[in-house]
């Protein structure tokens, strides 16, 4: 049974696209057939993170408008045979795709793929409404920062309004040292406000930046903490019970309060 998952956040810059790319690679590493759909039309980035920009021939807008079959627009990943990207257009804007069209496309993709990950644009306007239309499940990405949490809260409300009840939380870019000192919201504060199931806590990691620039998602790096966190999220999506990892702090492991998902 295939699943359509939308990755969304409300606020920009919290790591939606990074999360989409990593989860896509992680799911493909486990042998699933995965397609990543970029719906951030006009500001496409997902192809860069996967290092696939130079292989794009057609895009989402071409597929939606019926110019080409979706199979022609899919770009296969260099390393992972079962991972495909459906890039979007860099020249058109969000109005080029409407919710019904995306739902229809996802229905077709469901026949072939195990997981369909949709990378949602920031904001709560039309682009967001389009991106969530087809989803069975939503992953809300946030950061331990008051504005990001506030926007995530709004997004969860919007998802509820659109009858999306299966919502999971990923907290990205946690800086353990700052949390330790009380300078950053901790998981308790975030869960308090958002009160939805948390499936991932990803530490801030310099390797994310370098891997992004190289077009190789950090999840493939064995020695990266963020990569490990993403591998854990993939496991949890596949239904495994994995405890949250403890974050490293200047050489040894800081005893952080573990927050288990409900």
């Amino acid at each position: 049974m295939s699943e359509v998952i939308v990755v969304t956040s409300g606020k920009g810059g919290v790591g939606k696209t990074t999360t989409t790319a990593n989860l896509g690679v992680g799911l493909a590493m486990r042998g699933n057939k995965v397609v990543l759909v970029d719906t951030d039309t006009g500001l496409r980035n997902l192809d860069l993170l996967l290092g696939l920009e130079n292989r794009i021939m057609y895009d989402l807008v071409d597929v939606i408008s019926g110019r080409v079959a979706y199979k022609k627009a899919l770009v296969r990943h260099k390393k992972f045979e079962t991972l495909f990207l459906l890039p979007t257009s860099q020249v058109k804007d969000k109005s080029a795709v409407n919710p019904e069209q995306l739902v229809q496309l996802c229905e077709e993709l469901r026949k072939e793929y195990d997981y369909i990950l949709i990378d949602c644009p920031a904001g709560i306007e039309q682009g967001f409404q389009t991106a969530i239309a087809a989803a069975d499940c939503a992953i809300v990405v946030t950061m331990p920062e008051i504005s990001a949490v506030r926007d995530a809260d709004k997004i969860i409300g919007e998802l509820g309004r659109a009858d999306k009840e299966n919502i999971k939380l990923v907290v990205n870019r946690i800086r353990p040292q700052m949390v330790e000192k009380g300078d950053m919201l901790d998981m308790g504060d975030i869960n308090d406000i958002l009160s939805i199931e948390c499936i991932g806590q990803v530490p801030d990691d310099e390797l994310v930046v370098t891997s992004t620039n190289r077009g190789e998602p950090v999840i493939t790096m064995e020695n990266s903490h963020a990569g490990q966190a993403y591998r854990n999220i993939v496991g949890r999506i596949c239904g495994e019970q994995i405890p949250f990892m403890e974050f490293p702090k200047e050489g040894f492991f800081a005893k952080l309060k573990r927050v288990f998902g409900r």
């Binding site: 709004k154 969860i156 409300g157």
Partner: peptide, 25 residues
């Protein structure tokens, strides 16, 4: 019977019972 999230509004002449949180906004 739910958490009221940012941007949501309840307006009524009667009393209100919320079984959940009322979030900022």
């Amino acid at each position: 019977n739910k958490t009221l999230r940012g941007g949501q509004e309840i307006q009524t002449e009667s009393s209100v019972l919320v079984c959940g949180n009322v979030n900022p906004g």
